[in-house]
Amino acid sequence: MRVYLHSRTWFLYFVMVIVILMTFWHPVLLLISLESGLLWWRILKRRLTAGHIFAALAIIGVLTVANPLISSNGATILFYLNGRAITTEALAYGFLFASVLVCTLLWCVILSDVMTTDRWLNVCGRRFWRTGLVLTMVFRFFPLFSKQWQKIREGQEALEGGSPVGLKETFRMTKRELLCMLTWSLEHGFVTADAMLARGYGAARRTFFNREKYGAASIGIALAIAAAFAAVITAAVNGGLEAQIYPYVRIHMDGCMDIVGSAAFFLLCHLPMISHKVIREERRMRS
């Protein structure tokens, strides 16, 4: 299959973005990641519901309030609660931590959406074909497992003439279901092993069916991702992108290195999007 952007380029992209996001805790970087994350959300035809926004606000709200309750670090004391100092810095830390969490979650959703099982296989590639094979079998087994569990639950209820009443009964039923699942999984494994043997597994040195080829775009974008990542790191090493919370909140965004680092991260987050072909490919997969 001819693909525009190779799975490994995608993988590199997500790793770089998420690593920076989780290491730097810088509000400007967070805003950039939020903006680009929401753009991806749109491109991937996901719907942003009130539930999503509520969940994000709830995480931020709870963590912002919770942090001062367990941490009294920080110099600006707002008031005392049960003899404990509640500080502006602790509130800010909670807020920042929650924001990093929300942004990381957002990017993880995008990652799981873009990285289909096929793409994971290609990331594993020829060298790690065993990992790839295990992955594809796990991807097949999980839905099968939950489907079978549902069937077993129904089968047991059908036998006993209804669903269990009371905690003790429910516990006994769940125990039986677990036993049933265990036997089924083992049996499933045996038959699958036979089926694999029947289809030539172990007959020769195994190859890896590589469906994707590296094109100029895949290599070019991968190089650009690496360069942008290097630029962010260089900026940070040279004193840029510093966000200090304790003892005082001090966010740097005025030096040359801050500007270079933020610009590089902005570029990194938007890199695959700058190509219409990437967007078209992703949207076609979801049509």
Binding site: T117, D118, L121, W129, L133, T136, M137, F139, R140, L144, E187, H188, V191, T192, A195, M196, R199, G200, Y201, G202, A203, A204, R205, R206, T207, F208, F209, N210, R211
Partner: peptide, 27 residues
Amino acid sequence: EQQVVTDRVWHELAFSLENLGVTSDVI
């Protein structure tokens, strides 16, 4: 149910040939 090894139709077809050491182009 138990004889299908992988999670995608294309991969199920390719699986047999991968086992036999066939190259990607031929698969």
